[in-house]
Structures are given as structure tokens and as C-alpha cells.
Design a binder for these strands. Structure first.
Lengths: 232, 232, 232, 232
DNA sequence: AATGAATGAGCCTTCATTCAT
DNA sequence: GATGAATGAAGGCTCATTCAT
């Protein structure tokens, strides 16, 4: 995990300096991008090196040369996604938006939904992450530690400011409730598409849904005595 | 799909009358049960016929004999799950519980969470359904039509009674919000387990979470002007 | 190692009784024979499953079905060779031959050389064993324990009777000397063939060489004070 | 084979004069040494160019550049080994030792055993040669001609002086007997290590074994009428 | 009604080799 | 004089499926 834009996996020593992955579109970068796409679409086990290389226009042995094996490629794809994703961080958006916690929640939910909803090419990051969250892979620990936890803690901080009387467990459960409302549009998208044929999930609709989730949650969080369980 | 307790796929003619799947535990039924377990655990693509037959104590050719091929087995497993699941229907539970819509919602959420949370043997039905909802498989249409839609409509009916002023889109989105709050505990369980190590998801905690989701949602739904979008 | 004429590697339970490997020439037996040949010729690493299956007239997946993987096939081939080889045991031949230790040594060497020298089809056993002795494989422990050690001990017993004054180390080293004289005709056969173009290693010549080794060794063993080292 | 310290295989022209391989330790020499080590340890087929280059601290394309391909590298390694080995020739040692044929045999055997027994770094020559003798490789003819035959003839000369009455075939077979006694400690070392756990094969023990083989063989050769075969 | 045996496609990986600097 | 990148051919193994009882 320490190698970021690393040298080929097999070459021993004497690694020449490599430019960042955005500069040129060498085989390594095309592989990362193609692999992200395929991993996001098919999942780790179901994705095949052959298709990744085919999409990247590379030979089938290119993955072995540049990353060593499939698992390492996967981990590097996750890391690559994280690096790209940080430019588009819900938590940061929320922090920049305003000091009003309600506005911060609104910004958080909107950004989260936008990242999830996009179907376009360059945005396989969120799909991949959501998939990794659902099925525990080799990189789950890394994803949770550096990807999920910071966002969750930012959300919990917002919730505490929204209603300081909430117990710790309640804060956690409210955070789960909010994230859950967003994630269903990703996890259950095929079902929702059949259930509600009018669903488009274009930019406008995503904004509307984000607004719904925000108001829905604000109303609920405002209520004092939520949970029926312990307040630890 | 029309064959319910059908004759073996290959042996034309000579089919003796077959009893229902609950009576004896012939190979066919053991295969259905084992397949449900494995499909729920590993997913369709990742599940192997070998493991299914091993768990069922059957020969490796048994699937081909009884169901023809893997896909047909999967569809029959889904159908089997639906037949079994109806005895444990959140919507029915809600209808039986009370005429008070808030109590109905409480019953709906609790039953839904209980079916999802159980990791035990006999309850692979819900896990399988949730998996099918997440990744569109061959049987998705069937699942949606006869499994998901009725429950969703029951939930929407409850919501309309809770707040008659909600527009149709708002009802849909509130339903999604409620189901989303529940499903996250299934889809993102590995992540939540790392995020909140105290999470047990045993019967008691599931009841608490269900209560949280119920109150959270009741508060939100009670508010009149939810969505920012169209009310169509 | 416990399965001797075992059921297919994957089939769980309910193993029907299998006839001995000499009765019919099913795929499993043809695989064992072809694998013995190829392993003896090319060595474990260099032998390919593809060639084994091609020689056996079987599909490439047959090895996986019958033995599980390449290593297990190898171990079973070794075991198979041992079972076949016991009918042709130098130690037994020596014991049966006579009570005169010199005659026993003569029988031992002759039988050993005959097993090594044969180039014919059914006799890949000795070649395989010699190869396994040279390059430590997975089955080496098994080979040593049940194949090599008994013969060596029989030989050492003969030597002790030939010259009771030999120390234990001397007995061991004499045994090595005798076996070494035999094995060179196997291990270095390509070199000897170039060095001595007249070498045929047919039955008659093998008998002559065996007689040479016998007399050579009898003369040496008869001398009392052999080794320069410890007599422990 | 004519190129001894040749120019790079690919770069035609522009070849600067190259110093002998003992002067500097350029890439070419480090490759030869590393390749010798690896070939001796793993054998030709099993050795990989990657490991050779890794041990030599060279690029993976270095072998192609300096030698053309793997087989050519192997042949050059064999030739290199011969050049180095001549400094340590059992036959020469024997000739230098004394004029007494028994002493010559003693020197021959001791030197041979010492070269074989050493497991250390600088002595992969003998291990490589023994391996090439066992499994016929591309360079076998060369090895036999310039490496094995001279030693064998020196040994045969010693034997003829030890017992002039020996026929030509007997001389050959005695030579084989002596060499076989030595080689078993190399070819069957893994087995012997299991059979006799006390075996160390350190310098002292090698000397003892050499002495054993010498006395064993002297006793045998002294006997007049050895072989039972033709005396041609 | 059910089974053991066999099949061919496809997977990930490793290898020696070549190309363009 | 030497290198990093890229290639295609196997290799072992797993899989769903079919055949002949």
C-alpha cells in the first residue's frame, strides 16, 4: 500500500521517477481506469483480467507486469479511487458550505447523492466503493479506515450540533439512517427502476431526492427522544 | 416458472406424482434449501453447483437432473423463497397488528429488520432477496413483481394514512427512506461492523434499531412539507 | 496418502467399491500409467498435466477429477509404483536366493540393476524412484520410509554377515558404495553412453555389470580395516 | 562456443575490446556467476531468467542483450565452469600428488569428493556438472568431451597401473564403480540425509568417506579376475 | 430416480522474449 | 552499454455441463 504511483511489480530496484497518473495515459494508467470500471461493474471475483486488459488496450500479461497480480491491482485501484475521490468529498463540501449545521447536512447529503448517482465514465469510484462496502474484500479495512470513517465522523459531528441532547448510540443510528436513505438509490437501483419507472436519477432528480432526504432527516433529528434503546 | 413442484427436468414421462416440498425431504427439496443458503451467502455467480450438492448430500449431477441448469435452479430457489417468505410477510404482520398506522409502521419495520438481521440457517430468504435486489439477476423481474412490489405498496398505504397530505412522489420517497434505513444494516454490514465494533445485531439490538427507525420516520413523515420537488 | 485405490477426489461420500487398478483399464489407471511415464521422463515440475492427459487419451480435466491436483497425482503415482515394485524387490530376491550372504548380495545387486536398467514401458517405476531420490519432492519422505530404507537395511544386514568385524559406519559406507556403483548406470547413463559407445545395457550386459559390482564389492568388504574414520 | 569473452549478442559493431572475465565484475560476469548458481540449484528448465538477473543485480533484458537467449547463456555458463574448474582438477591433483598409483587414486577420489561435497557459493561448478550429467542437456556433448572424458581417462590410467591384468572392459567398469561411489553422495544426498541423520558431509567427513572409497576400491581392484563378462 | 465419469471452456499466473528508447 | 515496457504462449486449476448407465 505504500507504493502510490509505483514502479512495475517485478522490476527490482533502480526505480526511475514516475510522473503522476494524470499526466500521460500510459498503460499503467489505462489499466487502473479500466480495472476500476470493470471491478465496479462486476465485482472483484467476477471481473476478469482479460476484460480489463482488453478495455485498456493492453496485453493480458500487462497486469502481472505492472501490478503483480489481480489482488494487488484491486488494492491499487481502491487507493487510486480514494485519491481521486478526495477532490469530491462530502465532508469537505459540508464544512465549506456554511457553519449552520442544517446547511452542512444539506451539502453533505447532496454531494453524497451526486457522487453515487452519476452513471458516467469517470465516476466508477463511488460505485466501486459501494460495492466494496457491501461485500468484504481484501481492501475493506483500508476503505473503511481512510474512506468511510472520516465521512461518517463528519456526519456524526453535524448531528451532534443539530441536536446536542442525542446520546452517542442515537447519533450513530441517525447517521446510519441518513446514509442508508442515500445508499438505497445505489444498492437497490435496479429494483427501484422497475418499481418506479419514472425514476431518472438525473442531476435534477438527484437534487430533489437529496433535498427530500435532508428535510426528512432534519425533522427526525430535531425530535429529542428518538431511540428506544440504551443511550450509553 | 410455471412448474412449482415439477418433474425432473430431463426424465420426460414416467413422472410420478410429487408431494409438496414440505412433506418429505427428498433430494429436490434438500437441493432447494442448500442452494438458497449458498446463493444467499455467495451470490449467483460465485455460488458453485459443487458446494450446493455437497451441502445437500446429493450427487453433482443432481442439479442438472432436477432443474436442468444453474440458472433454472436459481429461479426456482427464488420462487421457493417467496412461497416460504409469505408466511413471514412484513405487510401482513403490519395489517394484522393494528389499525393504527403508526403501529402498522412499527410492525412493518420490526418484521423487516428481523428478517434481514437473522444470520441463522432457516432465514436465507431475506438475504437472498436483498442480494438479488442489489445485483440485477435473471430473476429480478419476478422478485420485484411478486416479492418487492406488494410490500412496497403496503408501506406506501401506511404512509398515506400517516400523512394524507403527502404527494405521490413524497410517498414514494418516504418509502425509499424507510426501506433504505433498514437495508443499510444488511448491505453495509461488514462496514458497520468495523465502524461500530459494539454492533451485535442480535434480537435485542435489532428491536432497538427497528424502534429507532420507526420513531425517526414517524417524526419525519409527520411533517407536512417534505419534498422540494414536484408533487405530481 | 491413506486412499489407495480411491474414489474421485471431488465426489463427496458414498464411494462405491472400486476394483483394483490391474483389472480394467479405466481412465484412472491410464492416467496413473501415463503420469508415471511422464514424471519419470521429465520430472515433477517439468511434467505437464496436458501431456499426461494426452498420453492417457483423457481430457485435461481428468486429473483434477480423479486426483484433485498435480501434486496428489504425483503422490499416488509414487504409491502406485511402490505397490507394483514390491513384486520385484531386491531385498526379497536376496532373501529367497540363498542363505549364503555372498549369494544374497549377488541376487540383490542383480535385481537392483535389472530394475534400473530396463528401458521398457512398464518399468518407469525405478526411473521415477531414482529421480525422486535425486531431487527432493513432496513424496520423498514416503519414498524413503517405505521404499528405500527397507532395501538399505536388508543390504546392511547382508554386509554384517559378510564381515562381522565392520563397524556400523563402515557398514553404512559400504552400503552406499554398493548402491552408488549401481545407481551411476542410471543417473549418469547419458554420459556413460557417450563415454563408452559400446554400452548397450541390455539384459546380458546388465548381468555382467551386476556380476562385476558383486565381485568388486565382495573383495572390498572382505578386507577388515576399511574406513579411516570413526567406527562408532 | 567459439566466443569466449564475446561481444554482446545483439549490438553488432561498435564492440569495444573486452577484458577477461576475471578482471572487472561487469554485468556479463555477474550474470555468468549468478546463472551458474541458479542453474546448479534448480536445473536448466526450472531456472528462471528473472532470478538470474535479480541475483546479478541486472535488468531482466540483460541476458538477452549479453547472450541472446537462455540456452546460449547456459552453454556459456558450462564453458565458464570448465575454464574455472581446470584449476581444481582431480586428474591433475592425482598426477601431482605422487607417482604411486594408489596415492594417485587417493588424491583423485579426495579431490572429486571435495568438489562435489561443497555446498558453498564459489563451487557451483561441480554441482552444475553433476546435474548436466544426470539430465541430458544441450551442452552435454561439450561437457563430456572437455570435462568428463579427460578425468575418466586419467582414472582409467591409474587403474591400469594398479592392476595391469585388468581387461579394458574391467578397467571401464572399475572406473564406473569408483565414480559411482562418489557420485551417490551428490545425486542421492537428500535420501542419504534422511536415511542417516548423522550425515554431515563437512570437510572432515568428506575426507573420511574419500578414504573409505579409496580403500574399498583398492581392495577390489587388487583382485585379479573381477568381471564375469568379456575382456575384449 | 439418481449417479459416477468425463468434457471443454475459461480463469489467473508465469515465462522467455522482443521492442523502443 | 543497458533498460523499462510490453508481448504471446503455456501452465495448473475450476467450473457448469453432459453422457451412459
Amino acid at each position: 500500500m505504500s507504493r502510490t504511483a509505483a514502479a512495475p511489480a517485478r522490476a527490482a530496484g533502480k526505480t526511475s521517477a514516475r510522473v503522476a497518473e494524470s499526466a500521460d495515459h500510459g498503460t499503467r494508467e489505462r489499466l487502473l481506469d479500466a480495472a476500476g470500471e470493470v471491478f465496479a461493474d462486476r465485482g472483484y471475483e467476477q471481473a476478469t483480467i482479460r476484460e480489463i486488459c482488453r478495455r485498456a488496450g493492453a496485453n493480458i500479461a500487462a497486469v502481472s507486469y505492472h501490478f503483480g497480480d489481480k489482488k494487488t491491482l484491486y488494492i491499487e485501484v481502491i487507493a487510486f479511487a480514494h485519491r481521486c475521490a478526495d477532490e469530491y468529498d462530502p465532508a469537505r463540501e459540508a464544512a465549506n458550505a456554511a457553519s449552520d449545521p442544517a446547511e452542512r447536512l444539506r451539502a453533505f447529503v447532496l454531494t453524497f447523492m451526486q457522487r453515487i448517482g452519476h452513471k458516467g465514465r469517470p465516476a466508477w469510484h463511488a460505485r466501486l466503493m459501494a460495492r466494496e462496502m457491501a461485500s468484504p474484500g481484501a481492501a475493506l479495512d483500508h476503505v473503511v479506515r481512510s474512506g468511510v470513517r472520516p465521512k461518517f465522523e463528519a456526519l456524526q459531528a453535524i448531528l451532534r450540533r443539530l441536536n446536542p441532547r442525542l446520546g452517542e448510540r442515537q447519533v450513530e443510528r441517525c447517521a446510519c439512517s441518513i446514509v442508508g436513505q442515500c445508499l438505497i438509490y445505489h444498492h437497490a437501483r435496479p429494483v427501484l427502476a422497475r418499481l418506479f419507472p419514472h425514476l431518472r436519477l438525473d442531476d435534477r432528480e438527484i437534487a430533489q431526492i437529496a433535498e427530500h432526504i435532508t428535510r426528512f432527516s432534519l425533522s427526525a433529528v430535531a425530535q429529542a427522544h428518538l431511540g428506544g434503546g440504551d443511550r450509553s
